Simulated assay, not measured.
Amino acid sequence: MYHPKENPWQIKSEAEIYDNPWINVTEYQVINPSGNPGIYGKVHFKNIAIGIIPLDEEMNTYLVGQYRFTLNQYSWEIPEGGGALNIDPLESAKRELLEETGLKASEWKEIQRMHLSNSVTDELCIIYLAKGLQQFEAEPEDTEDLIVNKVPFQEVYQMVCNGTITDCLAVAAILKIRLMQLENTL
């Protein structure tokens, strides 16, 4: 498929608007692809988004429930979190799975890479399938008040279809696993 190799956006200037340990916000004065002046804001993430679909032998998975500050509502999700840019993403996935669910897996497979909101952020997401599960003690961070439920995967898939699960990382991961089921590539 053809696509232009050169960036049609011209940056005239940039200014850092905000910075904290997790994100940086920059505002750009630009000439847009139509040749008109404008502004563009970019949120740079200082971590990689990591998601894990743990599947046991009976096709059960684990959902993590928590109240999301940004949404002001409760959210059911797959185990997920951030991984430092200078650490192997698989090591971050192993840490997140143990932290949130108390699970360790003997088999890991990367199943998806994607950008979560490429119109305003540069956030990269990597999703893993984890199998060969063993239960240990969960180690949640002090900012996490989590409920973990073991749920049949088919029920989790239905939660995506009926809009109960809305977290984009979880939705993408669950749909990818369902596709892998249909293609017999699990």
Score class of each variant (00 low, 15 high):
residue 145 D to W: 11
residue 56 D to Q: 05
residue 161 C to R: 13
residue 83 G to C: 08
residue 158 Q to G: 03
residue 156 V to H: 07
residue 43 V to R: 03
residue 97 L to F: 02
residue 140 P to N: 00
residue 108 W to M: 00
residue 137 E to L: 02
residue 117 S to N: 08
residue 143 T to V: 12
residue 101 T to Q: 06
residue 135 Q to E: 06
residue 149 N to K: 15
residue 102 G to A: 06
residue 108 W to I: 03
residue 147 I to M: 05
residue 54 P to L: 00
residue 77 E to R: 15
residue 33 P to T: 12
residue 34 S to G: 04
residue 38 G to C: 07
residue 88 D to I: 11
residue 71 L to F: 15
residue 82 G to Q: 14
residue 144 E to P: 01
residue 123 E to L: 11
residue 158 Q to H: 04
residue 162 N to C: 05
residue 73 Q to A: 13
residue 91 E to K: 10
residue 57 E to Q: 06
residue 153 F to W: 09
residue 87 I to M: 13
residue 120 V to Q: 04
residue 62 Y to M: 01
residue 143 T to Y: 14
residue 152 P to I: 10
residue 67 Y to D: 02
residue 84 A to M: 14
residue 159 M to I: 00
residue 78 I to E: 00
residue 85 L to H: 14
residue 64 V to S: 01
residue 50 I to C: 09
residue 129 L to N: 12
residue 60 N to L: 01
residue 53 I to R: 02
residue 39 I to M: 05
residue 40 Y to P: 00
residue 113 R to L: 04
residue 32 N to T: 12
residue 60 N to Y: 13
residue 63 L to H: 07
residue 79 P to N: 06
residue 67 Y to V: 02
residue 114 M to Y: 14
residue 163 G to F: 02
residue 47 N to C: 12
residue 65 G to N: 10
residue 155 E to F: 01
residue 58 E to H: 07
residue 45 F to E: 09
residue 82 G to K: 03
residue 60 N to Q: 03
residue 66 Q to K: 05
residue 62 Y to T: 04
residue 137 E to N: 01
residue 77 E to G: 10
residue 53 I to Q: 01
residue 41 G to I: 11
residue 103 L to K: 07
residue 93 A to Q: 06
residue 124 L to A: 07
residue 98 L to W: 08
residue 34 S to L: 10
residue 71 L to R: 15
residue 53 I to P: 01
residue 36 N to H: 11
residue 162 N to L: 06
residue 80 E to C: 13
residue 134 Q to D: 07
residue 112 Q to M: 09
residue 138 A to E: 04
residue 57 E to I: 04
residue 96 E to M: 07
residue 139 E to L: 05
residue 36 N to L: 08
residue 65 G to Y: 14
residue 49 A to M: 11
residue 152 P to L: 10
residue 113 R to V: 08
residue 126 I to V: 14
residue 117 S to K: 05
residue 92 S to C: 07
residue 122 D to H: 07
residue 137 E to D: 05
residue 106 S to T: 15
residue 159 M to K: 09
residue 135 Q to D: 01
residue 118 N to D: 11
residue 82 G to P: 10
residue 120 V to S: 04
residue 83 G to M: 05
residue 46 K to I: 14
residue 62 Y to L: 00
residue 101 T to A: 09
residue 99 E to Q: 09
residue 111 I to V: 13
residue 49 A to K: 13
residue 58 E to P: 00
residue 111 I to P: 06
residue 106 S to W: 11
residue 44 H to L: 03
residue 39 I to P: 01
residue 60 N to E: 04
residue 34 S to D: 08
residue 82 G to R: 13
residue 70 T to W: 15
residue 35 G to N: 04
residue 108 W to Q: 00
residue 81 G to A: 11
residue 151 V to Y: 12
residue 38 G to F: 12
residue 74 Y to R: 12
residue 88 D to H: 13
residue 68 R to T: 05
residue 35 G to R: 04
residue 124 L to P: 05
residue 67 Y to C: 03
residue 127 I to R: 05
residue 98 L to M: 01
residue 141 E to K: 05
residue 114 M to A: 11
residue 138 A to R: 10
residue 88 D to K: 11
residue 95 R to T: 13
residue 154 Q to K: 09
residue 55 L to W: 01
residue 83 G to Q: 00
residue 85 L to D: 03
residue 103 L to Q: 14
residue 89 P to V: 08
residue 128 Y to T: 01
